[in-house]
């Protein structure tokens, strides 16, 4: 079933180890729900990229919403382009190659995909561009509004993994949710991984949440609980992130 699947992510590296390791990091940070495939190495197992392997990876990660490919060096990009051009015509327009660092781009792309983002949004997230539809995100969604403040006590602050968790959780609610890292600071979209990670909020920041919409109270309660739990990471584990 490729319907209802999030946008798929394909990792193409010259190195089998880099490809597998990148996929491991995506799985650990974003989870199992996003279709993810990887390939690395030439047909003999040496460093390089292999068009048939890239085509197989696209098949594995296929979603009707499309597939975003993350590559490392030039040959990976060229061979990915060839693999895309060999897809059926109906698929080609639903595959993009992201101009982004392979590990960071894969994590950001998968995070955006996890929340149900469209292919263009996934590519933009990987490339650390702000979401295209941000103008449509208003503060005035119908329904209740709720606010809360919570101390960011996670030792690493709003680092990559906490940002991914916060964004993923925010995206499960219909409400418009904004977060600000300090009083008087800029209100940013809590559903944008690029925005949340870009806030670089350190430990000890006071996070302000503001939600408007039908499920605003639930959203705020869940987000506060997540931050208070240090993002559900044991403290020993958290200090490593």
């Amino acid at each position: 079933m490729t319907q209802d699947r999030p946008v798929g992510i394909v990792v193409v590296s010259h190195s089998p180890d880099v490809a597998r390791g990148t996929a491991d990091m995506v799985r650990q940070m974003v989870g199992e729900e996003v279709p993810l495939a990887f390939c690395g190495g030439n047909s003999e197992g040496g460093l390089g990229t292999d068009v048939p392997a890239i085509m197989a990876a696209i098949d594995d990660a296929w979603s009707d919403l499309g597939v975003a490919i993350l590559v490392d060096l030039g040959g990976a990009e060229l061979n990915s382009e060839m693999a895309v051009e060999m897809q059926p015509a109906g698929r080609q327009s639903r595959i993009v190659i992201c101009d982004a660092p392979i590990v960071e781009g894969a994590v950001l792309a998968a995070t955006e995909a996890h929340g149900g983002g469209a292919l263009a949004d996934v590519k933009r997230a990987a490339e650390r561009c702000l979401p295209q539809v941000e103008a449509g995100v208003t503060d005035s969604a119908p329904g209740a509004s709720a606010t809360a403040e919570v101390l960011l006590s996670h030792p690493a602050g709003l680092h990559a993994r906490p940002s991914v968790k916060l964004t993923k959780l925010a995206k499960t609610y219909q409400s418009v949710i904004k977060v600000s890292a300090d009083s008087g600071g800029e209100w940013i979209d809590a559903k944008s991984i690029v925005r949340v990670m870009g806030a670089k909020a350190p430990r000890g920041s006071l996070l302000h949440f503001r939600a408007t919409g039908e499920d605003a109270d639930d959203a705020i309660a869940a987000l506060v609980a997540l931050v208070e739990s240090d993002f559900e990471e044991a403290s020993a584990d958290a200090t490593k992130s």
Partner: peptide, 14 residues
């Protein structure tokens, strides 16, 4: 060449 070379030269010479 495209399917077997495994480097940028595959797509280019292909």
């Amino acid at each position: 060449l495209v399917m077997s070379v495994g480097g940028a030269s595959g797509p280019l010479f292909g």
